[in-house]
């Protein structure tokens, strides 16, 4: 554990809770892509199956359970409890376009040809692109509420901080995980455009608007 990794995890937890709290307090899922949330739930379920057979630390276990339960809760709120407020008409990104390539990539790049390692690889690739339905939705509606922007910023920062963590771990312990690093870089690049808009608009008190 190093400071970058810890800050990344804090940012990740913050993102998850910003989203849950926003939906809960406004009693609305407007502007949130249910499809992205389903993809994130698949990511956590596929990656954290090792909960049952490998124990790393209490911190690790608690975080894994937290991400699985929070993402399931988010999906439940969007598709069941506040279904009437969910903007399904604008949430039209075809998730098979990210599910199928992630699965194929997992079969090509993995650390061993076992079910759990394939699931792990798949989850890493899927996580990199799971935000696409949400970004697509923001582009389609042309704007995002400020809290949604904060959520996206925290979620994007998490993987960017992990990149610093990987650089640090490479120099201090020789740890190098090419699959996570490559996917993590792609994931961070996807947020760059958003980061720019966030800094130039949201942080200056304006609403995030995308030009058509």
């Amino acid at each position: 554990m190093n400071l970058f990794r810890l800050m990344g995890d804090v940012s990740h937890v913050l993102a998850v809770f910003i989203l849950l709290a926003k939906i809960w307090r406004t009693r609305s899922a407007a502007g949130i892509s249910g499809r992205s949330q389903i993809l994130f739930t698949i990511v956590y379920l596929a990656r954290y199956m090792d909960l049952f057979f490998s124990f790393i630390s209490l911190y690790n276990t608690v975080m894994k359970l937290l991400f699985i339960s929070a993402s399931c809760a988010t999906v439940y709120l969007i598709y069941f409890k506040f279904r009437a407020t969910y903007d399904g008409n604008h949430d039209t990104f075809r998730i098979e376009f990210v599910l199928v390539p992630s699965l194929l990539l997992a079969f090509i790049f993995h650390y061993s040809m076992s079910f759990f390692e394939l699931a792990w690889s798949f989850s890493i690739f899927l996580e990199a692109v799971a935000i696409l339905p949400q970004l697509f939705m923001v582009t389609k509606t042309g704007e995002a509420e400020n809290i949604t922007s904060h959520y996206l910023f925290a979620l994007g920062s998490y993987r960017a901080l992990y990149i610093l963590n990987w650089i640090y771990r490479y120099y201090t312990e020789g740890h190098f995980d090419p699959i996570a690093v490559c996917a993590g870089i792609v994931q961070t690049i996807l947020y760059c455009d958003f980061f720019y808009l966030y800094v130039t608009k949201v942080l200056q008190g304006r609403k995030l608007q995308v030009l058509p």
Partner: peptide, 10 residues
């Protein structure tokens, strides 16, 4: 052995 057969990150 795989470089990361033991996944210790989230």
């Amino acid at each position: 052995k795989a470089p990361n057969s033991f996944h210790d990150e989230l």
